[in-house]
Amino acid sequence: MTVSANPNNDHWLWGVYTNHMVTHSFGDTTFVYNRQSGTTHIFNLVSMAMIEFLSEKPRSMNEIIRDFPAYMGVDAAECPAGVVRRLFGELDEIGLLELVQS
């Protein structure tokens, strides 16, 4: 997973515009249609949690790494920075994240 621009810049806040997405769940799996790309994605509970987390309010990369484990209800050790970055990178690459403020 490559992330083009460096998202670590603390002036950059990342969010999710939920009106760009349509979702439909079958059990723990959620199908997400991205209105901007026209692509259908399959998300598990963790990816959906990140979407919900970022749609609450925009956050910087550092805040995401710091606060996402608690949002999930797990210890930071169980959800280390590397995992959070990878998850972020995946959502970024498919165009669901938006740079809200810089």
């Binding site: 083009s4 621009a5 901007q36 790309s37 026209g38 970024d92 165009g95 740079l99």
Partner: peptide, 15 residues
Amino acid sequence: RMLKFETERIERALL
């Protein structure tokens, strides 16, 4: 839609 999205991705890549 495809063109708009790809354009947005290019903007993102060069951000």
